[in-house]
Amino acid sequence: MTDAGGPVADHDDPAADDGVPDLWRGLDLPGLADVHVHFLPPRLLDRIWSYFDAAGPLVGTEWPIRYKWTEDERVAHLRAMGVRAFSALAYAHKPGMAADLNRWTLDFARRTPECLPSATFFPEPGVLDYVRDAIDAGARLFKVHLQVGGFAPTDPALDPVWGLLTEAGVPAVVHAGHAPVGTAHTGPEPFAELLARHPALPAIVAHLGAPDYLPFLALAERYDRVALDTTMAFTSFFERFVPFPAAERPRLRDLGLAGKVLLGSDFPNLPYPYAEQLAGLVRLDLGADWLRAVCWHNAAALFDLPSA
């Protein structure tokens, strides 16, 4: 395929992880920036992996995790693929755990230079204080999982938190969509209500908002600081359940070129090679400039990443 940014050859569709560097080198990028990567305390991560292994109610399908490796092995693999910036998204599913998770993830970022300092929160007493503490400690990205957390984004306890993130300009990756299993608080309507209250909120909608792609595309078009991440979208695993409508690819291209689509993967919790995420983006045939924007430039602008 070609565009104003030059050709993207067939071999740039990586079939395996060791081919990932060929993609970003072929695009003349310094590497990849992935805003949807999970690093968590080992005991919690083990419990999450067990939940996926059991195809728990919020998973809803067989999900054999490919990268059940040690923390050091997972960091080394990201580095080997050229992922030069990545998050450490943790998420609280009950009261009393978010502040401890933030201490762990922020410490992980201090000892992992490529990691964007990441944090989370839950609607509970004291939430504003520990979110402010996390920002003061350097947090540059938050994760909110409405499906797993089981709370509404408009919970009154969170109203001052969203206001603080807006004022500080710190984005939150929000799992707002119904996929893989919807709950009372997922879907475009609760998130749209949140944005109506906080129209300047910097937010990144995980998984492109799947399966409700169209209303989440519309929200990203309407609100200046709302973006989308590509996590799991366009992979063969995800497309069998919630295929992205081909007719909407021009809108996706426009949003990506406008800085509003960012690479996300869900590493390490993947039932397929990391390379499949990138191969799916290449197969969209939206052009080299779009791939450059999504794989690096949009996150680089948002997080002021070094260019070399």
Rank of each mutant, 00 (worst) to 15 (best):
H36C: 14
L78E: 11
E73I: 08
G31V: 00
V35A: 00
A109S: 10
T120W: 00
P113C: 06
Y67A: 07
R111V: 05
V83R: 06
T70D: 14
D46A: 15
Y51Q: 13
H93D: 13
P41M: 11
V37N: 07
F86C: 06
A119W: 02
W104P: 03
M81A: 14
H36K: 04
A92K: 01
A33N: 03
E73L: 12
G82N: 02
R110V: 05
G26V: 10
P57I: 05
Y91N: 00
Y67K: 07
D72F: 09
A80C: 10
W69E: 12
A88S: 15
A54Q: 15
V35I: 15
L78W: 01
L101S: 00
G26Q: 04
P95W: 06
E73A: 14
K94T: 15
G60D: 11
A99I: 07
A92Q: 11
D53M: 02
D72A: 15
P21H: 08
W69N: 14
R47K: 04
L27R: 03
E114Q: 13
D72M: 09
T61K: 13
V35D: 02
F39T: 03
A119C: 06
L23P: 02
K68C: 10
V83G: 03
G26D: 07
W69V: 05
P95K: 01
G26M: 08
G56F: 04
F52T: 01
I48S: 02
S118H: 03
A80F: 07
R84Q: 13
L106H: 01
M97W: 11
L27E: 06
A99M: 05
V83C: 04
L40M: 14
A76H: 03
A98F: 04
P113M: 00
